[in-house]
Structures are given as C-alpha cells and as structure tokens.
Amino acid sequence: MTDTTGAGPEPAGGGTVLEVTGLHRAFGSVQAVHDVSFSLARGGSLGIVGESGSGKTTTARIVVGLERADAGRVMVCGRDRSGQPGRGRTQRLERAREVQMVFQDPFLSLDPRVSVGNVLREALRLHFPETRVDHARRVGELLDQVGLGSREAAALPRQLSGGQRQRVAIARALAVKPAVLVLDEAVAALDVSVQAQILNLLADIRRDTGIGYLFITHDLGVVRCVTDDVVVMRHGRVVEAGPTADVLADPRHAYTRLLLDSVPRPGWNPKHIAAARRAL
C-alpha cells in the first residue's frame, strides 16, 4: 500500500467496476426505485440525473450500502454486494473499501471537533492498521492530492471554507483507495468559482488514479462537464440512458428534453416549460 495512484482493489470482471441490475426499493406504497440497471466502466464516470423524488439518491445509497434493495443486484469489482451484509467487522470494512461516498454538505459529514489531519489518520488507522508507520506520509500525500497544505491539516472543519471542507471529504474518501466514488450532489452547495475548482480536482483525480465516479446531480451543466455516460431518472425509473454527449445533444425522451429546456439561458421561456411540464 505504498503507491499513491493505485485504483484500489483490482476488478475481477474486465472493464466494469460497478454493475447494477434490476434494483427495486419501495418505501411503504411509494416505489422509490423501480427496475433500475446501469453499469460503470473501470475509470469511467456515470451521471445519474433527476429531480427530487426521482430515486437517484436512494439508488446511490443502495450502491454504497446505506440502504438495502428489495430486489436486484449490485456488483462491485465482480463481487456481489446486494446480499445480506456480513456482520463481521472485517467484512464491513472490506465493503467500505470498495465504494466511498461524498455528500452534498461536508459540514454535516465531518466531526466538528476533529482536525483535518486526524480525520484522515482515523480513516487510515481503521482500514490499514498494519501499516501504521506510513500513515503520516500518506496523510501528506492525500492532502497534496486534494490541494490542501499543512496549515489546513491542523484546522478544524469550521475554520475552513465550503470548498476546502469538500476537499477534505474527498481526501477521506480517497484514503481507502476505493474502486468507486459516489458523489451525491457533491458540488451543489458550492459557489460557482469554487465548484469549478472542485470539478477540476475531480477530473484530475480520475485521470491520475483511474477511480470510477457515480455522480448524482440535478445540474445538467455539471453532468456535461464531468461524466462520460448518463442515466436520466424520473419517478424511480430510468427514462433514458446513453453517452452524455449524445443524450444531451439529441434527447429521445420528452422528460430529458424538458430537463434540458429548463436550464435558464438568454431567450429562455419559462411559460413554455411550465406548459410542457404539465403536458408530460
């Protein structure tokens, strides 16, 4: 575990790191996720686009293991994750190393009393207890990878800006060298100029490490910028899927067209969109 750019566990099954087949999940009478399937190529970036209630976040949480599916299968690196999760600590840690998640608000996902350096050290100590001697160096590497310095390492989350906190969350996720990083609206709360910095950082990390991204977002501009393929979800179902450039340039489903038309731009006509929405 000394290389800094490794992509984590070797995928057993060829070019696909994540394969999701026929996921179902109901909350009471609401079918939140209905027959959702997609796959993420090794080192690829897949966007899931949809509005609130589309099931995109539930899907992401099932992939990570924070939510269970009623039916369907999630394969990561050729291993099935969808069965009963193991109760043992070793098994749970193993699962955590395959897929990591970055949330929208890093302030809520970081302990306010733990310094940035200790956040990373904690993650390393938990997952790689046998290589403790290397941890100090690895913390430095991780901070460097996300563009933070030693000053930030000593800081508490509240002493950092929103963009810096999101960098910490990304570094913590990268610490265990996951094969897949799930980003749930990870740049949605950031200002435009900071969002651009984080999107660039994510592009660099993917290029350097070959990690795969599952990018959950409502922002089509962001999807265009950071994903190779895209899945459009509505009311729990996949309504359209394909290479991002093709789907955005030539949408086939009326809902995808509506989403595209809804992006404000000069000459935009909100009344047409409202009418199209009601017609759908």
């Binding site: 100029s193 651009a196 660039n200 501009g221 265009r224 910028c225």
Partner: peptide, 20 residues
C-alpha cells in the same frame, strides 16, 4: 471569470477555467 467557470451544456467535457 464567473461566466467561464460555470459548467454549461455547450462546454465539452474537461477542465473548467476556475477562478483561483
């Protein structure tokens, strides 16, 4: 700079011109 750093439908995949 704000206009350049906004991800848009028309901009292709790749790096954005972020404001440092």
């Amino acid at each position: 700079a704000l206009l350049r750093s906004t991800p848009r439908l028309a901009t292709p995949q790749g790096r954005l011109a972020a404001i440092k």
